[in-house]
């Protein structure tokens, strides 16, 4: 009986560890010192990187990254699904490896460039500009306080 229990524990251990592992699904995810977007950034994780969940609090996950244990990341920045560009298995045989990757997982910078080549009158300048808009955490805090609002998601 004791041997059976040990066997069960040994078999289940890797499954438990795997089930608490999540993949980063944003280009750059901020890991913070508290479950809040206004918390201090203690580590950054990149798209496709795996983090280990140790605790949940509302929509926030306490995670261990390869560099920093016990930081917080919002659940919408991580996913149980693999987000890496794995070639699709159902696409037509005979296409190049790159093409299979594209067809399996779709649209990327190459496709955007090909689209731009066919639509040279369309400027992406303002899209690039708006991506650079940033607001400081201190300004957000002031905006919330001054407006009699509250920070949600805690």
């Amino acid at each position: 009986m004791r041997r059976l229990l040990i066997s069960v524990v040994v078999l289940l251990a890797p499954v438990t560890a795997w089930s608490t592992s999540l993949n980063v699904q944003v280009e750059e995810g901020q890991v913070r010192n508290k479950p809040s977007f206004l918390g201090e950034i203690v580590d950054k994780v990149v798209y496709g990187e795996s983090v280990e969940v140790v605790k949940e609090q509302g929509p926030w996950r306490m995670v261990n990254t390869p560099r920093k244990p016990g930081g917080w990341i919002h659940q919408s920045a991580v996913s149980e699904s693999s987000v890496e560009l794995v070639p699709g298995s159902n696409v037509n045989a005979g296409a190049s490896g790159k093409e299979i990757a594209l067809a399996g997982k779709g649209f990327n910078a190459d496709v955007e460039n090909a689209y731009k080549a066919g639509h040279q009158q369309m400027s992406f300048a303002w899209v690039d500009n708006m991506e650079k808009f940033t607001v400081k955490n201190t300004d957000i805090e002031q905006f919330i306080k001054q407006g009699g609002l509250r920070e949600a998601g805690l």
């Binding site: 696409v91 399996g104 779709g106 649209f107 990327n108 910078a109 496709v111 369309m122 899209v127 708006m130």
Partner: peptide, 23 residues
């Protein structure tokens, strides 16, 4: 294959779609 792609639109792909719609 297409159906699989639609179900599996990754955040990165959504980003490129969003950029071009925005343009």
């Amino acid at each position: 294959a297409v159906a699989k792609t639609m179900e599996d639109i990754t955040p990165a792909q959504e980003y490129y779609i969003g950029r071009t719609v925005s343009a």
